[in-house]
Design a protein around this nucleic acid. Structure first.
Lengths: 351, 351
DNA sequence: GTGAAAGCGCTAACAT
DNA sequence: ATGTTAGCGCTTTCAC
């Protein structure tokens, strides 16, 4: 209401006829201050509603006490959880979080990385867009540690904490085969990003190992349409069409592994409309274990992603780099395991 | 790699034998600089990889060029979209976003509001926890404009931009009645927050107006369990139990309006297991129009929330207050309309 | 135990 | 057109 000027150390010093310096030390809890002085300062600070100016402190101390988080889309449930985990872990260590959203656009990414540099954040966590990385290189050259989340950035020497999608796809694929599936389809995002590539690799690896034929038309890419900003990253409608196509041509013992649960959902609908039963005629498994997965009809087998763990570990890794502990160490890649959650949609005898 | 010190204006000035001031003006594009000098400065800045220090500039100019966003849970899809919309709109105007997550805890909220004050952010957007608001009052007193999102804070004189949940509940309730429903149930969160209260009010109002009896057991509260941080705000399992209970006691012409689509989903499952058909035996409508809603079996009638619009308008309102335009104006409450999306789950003749 | 002086990197007067 | 001085709010170094 009263936008009167914010009280400063000087105001307290003047009121108490002390030097700014003494007030500073008193408030900082340093030893070289008499107990009485300390108390008087404390009281006056309280009376004036003094709030320390973090920016001024940061300027002199040379650290921003801020972490930058660059994310493609907060509406991706996995990233939403990542944001929470990172914010919490960062704050525990006294760091504020500056959030930047790229919507998977490199142009945006360049802009926000520049902005982070101007702010001089102490470290950056990022889900990179994965097209061009000159800006990431500039950031690294400026001495700011960077930890990548979920997606790698080939060519950039940086730590990465993510999910082991190669393994998650393997788990799901093996599960489908063990259940008797003979004709496997992989429905994936049409994005050239490492998580997709890893899942494709895991899927193929298992099929190759077990001598199952993989035709090109077994790997289906769902076109990613450019939608308004702040929208869902995936819409089941995008996979619905794919599902209709699939429904018309699959044979007995078919199974579909989807890159995310929304794709699985779109496929469900298409199959149902086509008179196919899940899992009777087609088994379906997803990725993400989103909140709705367990409550679909039938409940969806999917892979649970360790969002909280990835976020926490990424922050820890970043703080290590910032403290210069693991200084010269070569970049570390850590992929946390996902966990297959088996539900009715892949159960041979399931309803 | 080379964590060499960041180049400053002084470095450029020294290299060119100019004063810091001239360099500053040259880079700022001010007029009082000769074209040649401007160009030399530009070149040297580039050569040294100069990046302006935003904090230093902010300190002298007295504005942080930062907005604070306090949110309860980014995993709530509505809030996730809000975050994107706000980040984008803020950045367009040159503001960075400091994100704080409260997980619906007042203790956290106090902490983060204090932190925002120490940073001296220029304005704050917040989904408040709605218990106690001493900290919000302190923030206001410090002269920082605050715009509330989605939830009111009775007793605090502040702008609010949210959703008209009274109206959304009215729309849905009227729709259910028009479809022939005679026994209506409202399944809501067990949280003492204004959106819930508004929906309850809208629901009751329509029933009262149309002379439909509302018994206490028609208003069901889903217990909110404290879950790990960074988790989904709602889990269908919480409403599943409620659904089982309901399934056993509802009569013909029953309908359920849920406070969010996840609750509707839990109820779906319970009904199906009990041999009830939706919408044949019970009509169901939700809130939120989450990505899965249109793809459930049957597709869920729900209310689409104007997340992007709320976010954009909240930022605009905040910027106005910051610029002092709508200075003395009394607090404005703006509730944006939600839109009922009718799907099969409430269609009388639906499959 | 306290104070004076210097400086973080920048911009805003006011010179010249 | 350029330089000098001062100062944002704080911490640090070094006197006393």
């Amino acid at each position: 209401m009263t936008p009167r000027r914010r009280a400063t150390l000087r105001d307290i010093a003047a009121a108490l006829d002390l030097s700014v310096n003494t007030v500073s030390r008193a408030l900082a809890g340093k030893d070289a201050v008499s107990p009485e002085t300390r108390e008087r300062v404390r009281a006056e600070a309280e009376r004036l509603g003094y709030v320390p100016n973090t920016m001024a402190r940061s300027l002199v101390q040379g650290n921003a006490m801020t972490l930058g988080l660059v994310i493609t889309n907060p509406s991706n449930p996995f990233y939403a959880r990542l944001i929470s985990a990172i914010e919490e872990r960062g704050r525990v260590h006294g760091y504020a979080l500056m959030l930047m959203v790229t919507e998977d656009s490199v142009d945006n990414e360049r802009r926000v990385v520049d902005e982070l540099m101007r702010w001089g954040v102490d470290g950056v966590l990022a889900v990179p867009v994965q097209h061009g990385f000159d800006h990431w290189e500039r950031l690294r050259k400026s001495g700011t540690p960077v930890v990548l989340l979920n997606r790698g950035l080939p060519g950039l020497e940086t730590d990465l904490v993510g999910v082991d999608y190669y393994d998650s796809a393997r788990q799901a694929t093996e599960h489908l085969l063990a259940g008797g599936a003979r004709e496997l389809y992989l429905v994936e995002e049409d994005l050239d990003i490492s998580p997709v590539a890893e899942r494709v690799r895991g899927f193929r690896a298992v099929l190759d190992e077990q001598g199952v034929t993989v035709r090109d038309d077994h790997m289906v890419k769902v076109p990613t349409r450019r939608r308004e900003a702040s929208s869902q990253p995936w819409d089941p409608v995008d996979s619905y069409e794919i599902g209709r196509d699939l429904a018309a041509r699959i044979g007995p013992g078919a199974a579909v592994l989807a890159g995310n649960d929304y794709f699985a959902l779109g496929v469900y609908r298409a199959f149902t409309e086509h008179g196919l039963s899940v899992p009777g005629d087609v088994r379906v498994a997803g990725h993400g274990d989103h909140a709705f997965a367990a409550y679909l009809a039938p409940p969806l087998t999917t892979v649970r992603l360790p969002a909280t763990e990835v976020g926490a570990m990424a922050v820890d890794r970043l703080l290590e780099r910032m403290s210069g502990e693991s200084e010269a160490g070569s970049p570390q890649r850590t992929l946390l395991p996902a966990e297959l959650v088996v539900r009715t949609s892949t159960m041979v005898g399931g309803r």
